[in-house]
Simulated assay, not measured.
Amino acid sequence: MKYIVLIIGLCSLLFAVSSQAELEIYKDYDIGKEVTSMTTVRIDPNMEDVYLEGLRESWVKAVRLQKELGYIKDWKIFASELPQSGEFNMVLMVMFENSADLEPNQEKYKKFMKSWGQANQDNSRKITKTYPNVRTLTGEYRLREIIMK
């Protein structure tokens, strides 16, 4: 009985000490400058290729142009190897050098739209109208790296 009380006491002390632990930003960890915008998507069964085909002609074209113009750092698409598990089975990511790149900018917008052209704009609108038939957006996130020291 003494040992059980001793073990319970030690466990309580351990939890009390761990709950008092506090990390301090810039002392214990840093926050990265790069910002990642992430959209989680639930693709309907057997519709991944249909969705990817639409993305290639709309979203992928747009992010490639944005990267070429220097507006974004990079972009990625991830697909789950287990497509029927969880709330989403595909992730679309866009990486920015810093949060300033997310601010509205009329000059950048005009330059992008001029480069994008009316044909791409019309095609993109046509394609995106079909997306609700094959997918559901399940979340949007803006992420920064936590760099532990």
Results as ranks from 00 to 15, higher is better:
47 M>E: 15
22 E>P: 02
60 V>P: 03
57 E>R: 12
48 E>S: 14
15 F>E: 05
70 G>W: 04
63 V>I: 05
67 K>V: 06
82 L>Q: 08
43 I>L: 11
86 G>H: 02
97 E>V: 06
42 R>H: 08
73 K>Y: 02
89 N>G: 04
47 M>A: 14
53 E>G: 13
96 F>L: 07
33 K>H: 09
63 V>A: 02
92 L>A: 04
25 I>G: 10
95 M>E: 11
41 V>P: 02
44 D>G: 13
90 M>H: 00
87 E>T: 08
58 S>W: 06
35 V>H: 00
73 K>W: 02
86 G>L: 02
77 I>S: 06
11 C>H: 08
38 M>S: 05
48 E>A: 15
50 V>C: 11
35 V>K: 02
64 R>A: 04
40 T>K: 02
83 P>H: 03
82 L>Y: 08
92 L>W: 01
61 K>F: 11
60 V>H: 08
61 K>H: 01
13 L>E: 01
89 N>P: 02
72 I>W: 02
76 K>W: 10
10 L>N: 08
79 A>F: 09
60 V>W: 12
45 P>K: 07
58 S>L: 05
45 P>E: 03
65 L>Y: 02
96 F>K: 03
91 V>M: 00
13 L>R: 01
18 S>V: 14
94 V>D: 02
75 W>M: 09
68 E>Y: 11
13 L>P: 05
71 Y>M: 12
44 D>P: 10
49 D>L: 13
29 Y>L: 04
95 M>W: 08
64 R>K: 12
51 Y>P: 01
27 K>W: 03
43 I>C: 05
44 D>Y: 15
46 N>K: 14
76 K>Y: 13
76 K>P: 05
35 V>L: 01
53 E>S: 14
27 K>L: 04
32 G>E: 06
19 S>A: 01
53 E>K: 15
52 L>M: 10
29 Y>I: 03
11 C>R: 00
82 L>N: 11
62 A>N: 10
15 F>G: 08
96 F>A: 06
76 K>R: 14
45 P>M: 04
56 R>K: 15
67 K>I: 04
65 L>W: 06
44 D>W: 11
65 L>M: 13
31 I>P: 09
85 S>Q: 05
13 L>C: 09
56 R>V: 13
34 E>T: 10
50 V>A: 14
20 Q>Y: 15
77 I>K: 03
38 M>W: 01
85 S>R: 10
56 R>N: 15
16 A>C: 13
36 T>F: 05
48 E>H: 12
30 D>K: 14
65 L>K: 07
97 E>C: 03
81 E>S: 15
89 N>Q: 03
82 L>P: 04
41 V>L: 10
25 I>A: 14
97 E>Q: 11
36 T>W: 10
66 Q>I: 06
82 L>A: 07
85 S>T: 09
26 Y>T: 15
76 K>Q: 13
17 V>R: 06
77 I>V: 04
15 F>V: 11
28 D>M: 01
41 V>M: 07
75 W>E: 07
83 P>S: 00
14 L>Y: 13
22 E>K: 12
20 Q>G: 15
49 D>V: 09
74 D>L: 06
42 R>M: 10
30 D>T: 11
97 E>A: 07
65 L>D: 07
31 I>R: 04
92 L>C: 01
57 E>M: 11
69 L>Y: 00
32 G>V: 06
13 L>W: 00
48 E>G: 14
94 V>F: 03
21 A>M: 12
68 E>A: 09
26 Y>I: 12
70 G>A: 00
49 D>E: 10
61 K>D: 07
89 N>Y: 06
